[in-house]
């Protein structure tokens, strides 16, 4: 474990200093983050313009949810996205071979190599909005907050696993680098509580097929104290199943990769 922590530190340090060189980029991305933040709030106010609520959620509750969404989007951009994008590139250019030769768990190594510091402001903005809306809501319980931590971790795991499984297909289809973008396409649905969608197809899609509901709705429910035991268990269950699946799939992919290219 200690070894992994040390490696994490080195990876993070070198990838941070690489990005520091682009300072104009940093400023523009900061502005971009702010605009996206204001836009999300403006969007909510448009949706709540008639005071009728959204799928049974009040404006403040929905703001908690958008906070969770931005927080997770930010974390994904900081931690997950830069790595998974790199994996496809490594397969395409053949540098993956070097990684496989290192005496360190390959999935860990390819998943922890890069961080994108530019996206960190998004994390702060999301966290800020989440806390602000919770305070305004008032009736926050400690159980809710305690419960939200495993739910957020579970959500992040689900995101990581989906992205990782998608990108692992790169071992077979080299041109698949952009398949990861598919996730972002669906992920945007997480700005809204699952109940905002009309009953039927859309809800089933976002609960079971692309489990967006467990990424944002469930952690937000935990925070505002409206979570059911079934949701907690389902969230943890889905995260564990996906994690095991991602590992098995990775191992399987490596096996066919190494035997094919020898």
């Amino acid at each position: 474990m200690n070894k992994h922590l040390k490696i994490l530190k080195i990876f993070a340090g070198s990838s941070v200093s690489a990005q520091m060189e682009y300072r104009a980029n940093f400023i523009v991305q900061m502005i971009s983050s702010l605009v996206a933040f204001v836009g999300a709030l403006l969007g909510l106010s448009v949706l709540f313009g008639d005071d009728a609520g959204l799928g049974g959620w009040s404006l403040l509750e929905a703001q908690v949810l958008v906070g969770v969404f931005l927080l997770l989007e930010g974390l994904t951009e900081v931690l997950v996205y830069p790595n998974v994008r790199k994996i496809a590139e490594m397969v395409r250019t053949g540098t993956m071979d070097f990684t496989l030769l290192k005496p360190i768990d390959s999935q860990f190594s390819v998943s922890s190599r890069n961080v994108n510091v530019f996206a960190f402001p998004n994390v702060l903005l999301g966290f800020g909005l989440m806390v602000y809306a919770l305070i305004k809501l008032g009736n926050v319980s400690w159980t809710g907050i305690l419960l939200s931590i495993p739910m957020l971790l579970s959500a992040l795991t689900i995101i990581y696993c989906i992205c990782f499984i998608l990108i692992t297909t790169a071992f077979w289809f080299v041109k698949v680098e952009n398949i990861i973008e598919l996730f972002w396409g669906f992920f945007r649905a997480g700005q809204f509580p699952i109940t905002a969608f009309p009953a039927g197809g859309a809800r089933i899609l976002f609960t079971y097929i692309v489990p967006i509901a467990f990424i944002t709705t469930v952690p937000a429910q935990a925070l505002i104290g409206k979570i059911s035991l079934e949701s907690v268990l389902a969230s943890l269950g889905i995260a564990s199943v996906l994690f095991v699946a991602s590992r098995l799939f990775w191992k399987f992919a490596l096996k066919s990769y190494t035997s094919a290219s020898s």
Partner: peptide
């Protein structure tokens, strides 16, 4: 793939139809 990435309008369609129904 890129065509499917641009989901926002379809997500918004879901949300607004849901709102109209409610």
């Amino acid at each position: 793939i890129w065509m499917l990435v641009g989901m926002v309008p379809l997500i918004m369609m879901g949300v607004w139809i849901g709102k109209a129904q409610a």
